[in-house]
Amino acid sequence: MKNLDRRSFLKVAAAGVSASTLGASQVKGAEIKLDENRIGVLVDTAVCVGCRLCEWACRTAHHLPTDALETYADDSVFKEFRRPDKTALTVVNEFENEKNPLLPIHVKTQCMHCEKPACVSACIVGALTKNQDGSVVWDGDKCIGCRYCMVACQFQIPTYDYDVSIDPQIRKCDFCEDRRKEGLLPACVNICPNEALIFGKRCDVLKIAKERIKRKPEVYVNHIYGENEIGGTSWMYIASKDFDKLKMATLGSSPAPGISEAIQHGIFAYFVPPVTLYTLLGTFMWVLKRRKEKSPEEIGDTKKEVIEEKKDEKGEEL
């Protein structure tokens, strides 16, 4: 009778374990292997003239409403600092150039397509994906609109549709996935009249950035923004001014999702911690209950049993 009780207890307890831990999915971070030839873009802010044609091309390529091309010549928009929003996946801002006041600095902003994207790690339903080619894209069929990707992104790139209730979109640059499938360049790169945007393999683009800095050390500060920032990004910048003065956050080189994923995997390492906790609590509960029911001399007996039981369980788990 005693044995039977114990066995059925264990069985039911085991069922409970699986129920209680159902939540944690495969704990192994689906570490995707990036292609060696993955793509990248260099933004040379010293060459960019702020024509904003890329803004127009980007809107057009993504079927976002846009004013006529001629209106983009109006540079009064530079008066205020702009960020990508539901009307634009990329925007260009103007900054003062102390070295040469006649040539202000223009900085294009869009998703950086991080090497270790925080948004992908954070997304509750895996609606954001890092592709092997380096691009990071969003899947509107999965997204639940929780906006955790926006909390996670260190570049504050994903934007949300705050003024609709049904089918609000998370918007961000998708590296012109559709165009590239057809063998075309990203719209912004394609239209840029000044070669301020250089598209290619990330490794090649990085080399070009280094060369440009080396060739004109009097123009560029010696920093390629995106080479190492939070683990590196596909889009990289060179500039004649410190990046924090261009409103680009000073970030360390450790990947943004690193600590958070380590904690997650620590708590869930192959379900072992939750299952162990469950087993411990179950045993504990059972012993204490038995102790209440039994007379004092029998308690020693119970303890022995528990030790045996623990051995059993370990054998089963392994």
Binding site: A24, I144, D161, F268
Partner: peptide, 25 residues
């Protein structure tokens, strides 16, 4: 959440790396 009608998505779309997923489930 913006797309409240998709609140059940985490039940079948899992991302074990996401702390929010863990909290949700």
């Amino acid at each position: 959440i913006g797309r409240f009608y998709y609140i059940w998505h985490p039940l079948i779309m899992w991302n074990g790396n996401s702390a929010l997923f863990e909290v949700g489930i």
